[in-house]
Amino acid sequence: MTAPLLKKTPLNEAHRRLGARMVDFGGWEMPVQYPAGTIEEHMRVRTHAGLFDVSHMGEIEVRGSDAIAFVNRLTSNNVAKLVDGQAQYSVLTTPQGTAIDDLLIYRFSPDHLLLVVNAATTEKDWDWITSHRSDEAVILRNVSAEYCQLALQGPDAQRILQGLSDVPLDGIKYYHFLQGEVAGVKAIISRTGYTGEDGFEIYAAPEKAEYLWDRLLDAGSYGAPDGVLPCGLGARNTLRLEAAMALYGHELDETTTLLEAGLQWICKFDKGDFIGREALLKQMEEGVPRRLVGFEMIERGIARDGQDVYIAGEKRGRVTSAGPAPYLKKNIGLAYVPSESARVGQEIEIDIRGRLTKARIVPTPFYKRPRKI
């Protein structure tokens, strides 16, 4: 059988010209790293700036007088608390209190929301959302093909982007956005991030993707020792792991509840009914059986996703994400363990290719930059 063709972002040829190594990521052909390598890309984001192509992400538009009430029933956080120009992290929940997907919700007005969902789950999310629509006052559109998305991350991100835009970036607070222009291109500029650093996302028409990409690289002095670097999925993963940010399919899935994943902070039980509310309240009352924790290796060894976790000689959990932390110069990871063992300082062992290797539960996030915004 012929393998299905991979989807391509509008920047596919640009990545190839820059020497990116391309891989299959959820059905998309995406750059995993460029010639500088994942470690250098990671370090450049921590110290200067990195530019990511995240155009594979999905976008679903919700319009109508019931837009807020509709999305509030499908997600765990409280959409009604948003004001125009504000974004919110949330989860599409199942009746069991587990995750269909995690997502960002952008509020443009009381009757206009934009949901930004994960690339590999866009079709599943679309089917789930549309299956719950029963009100003519809600209009849904899958507008993923109408956007490219670039993410400029790092301590130099604001300086670089401000040189290309008249939008006052200082006025964009964390998890807020404005509409304006970047290099003369109409765009949505938001400030959320998935790296633990300050940074911005730029949503624009896909035919403008290469132009914006090149302008951002030029403005960031690409090629200079402290210039912006294009970054691939490898650095995106190590950066989000240092910041202990969840990745769908690893820390979150349809078998893991939000309480187990440590996301009680986005479960707004006082907002009224939402899918999974009763299951989550019941779990709170009965007790959460397992919890997500961070760990660092004590003994020599690098833990990897999916490896077993042992406590007192018994298999008691599994690693969801793990690997070297380039900036911290440690080997770290996230894992699910029984709640009674989910305490800082608890020693655990990771089965690394048949050898039980010592690790210790530590506070998360592993890396946290000083907040200036």
Results as ranks from 00 to 15, higher is better:
12 N>M: 12
13 E>W: 01
14 A>P: 15
14 A>D: 15
19 G>M: 09
24 D>N: 11
30 M>Q: 02
30 M>R: 11
41 E>I: 01
43 M>F: 04
48 H>E: 00
50 G>C: 03
52 F>Y: 00
55 S>R: 00
61 E>N: 09
72 N>F: 05
83 V>T: 09
90 S>R: 07
92 L>M: 06
94 T>S: 02
98 T>W: 03
108 F>A: 14
116 V>M: 08
117 V>W: 08
124 K>G: 03
124 K>D: 04
125 D>L: 06
130 T>S: 07
133 R>E: 06
134 S>M: 15
135 D>C: 12
136 E>C: 11
138 V>S: 05
145 A>E: 12
146 E>I: 11
148 C>M: 15
150 L>I: 13
155 P>T: 09
158 Q>L: 10
159 R>W: 12
160 I>Y: 02
173 K>D: 15
176 H>L: 06
179 Q>V: 05
181 E>D: 13
182 V>C: 01
185 V>A: 00
187 A>G: 00
192 T>S: 05
197 E>G: 04
198 D>W: 12
204 A>L: 03
211 Y>W: 09
224 A>L: 02
225 P>R: 10
228 V>N: 08
235 A>E: 08
240 R>Y: 15
244 A>K: 00
247 L>D: 13
251 E>D: 08
251 E>V: 08
260 E>R: 06
263 L>V: 13
265 W>C: 12
266 I>Y: 02
268 K>D: 12
272 G>V: 12
278 E>S: 10
278 E>F: 01
279 A>N: 05
285 E>H: 13
290 R>H: 02
290 R>W: 01
290 R>T: 03
290 R>K: 05
294 G>V: 04
295 F>N: 06
303 A>G: 07
307 Q>F: 05
308 D>G: 09
321 S>L: 09
324 P>T: 10
326 P>W: 07
329 K>I: 11
330 K>F: 01
333 G>Y: 06
335 A>I: 05
336 Y>S: 09
340 E>L: 09
342 A>I: 01
360 R>S: 04
366 F>H: 10
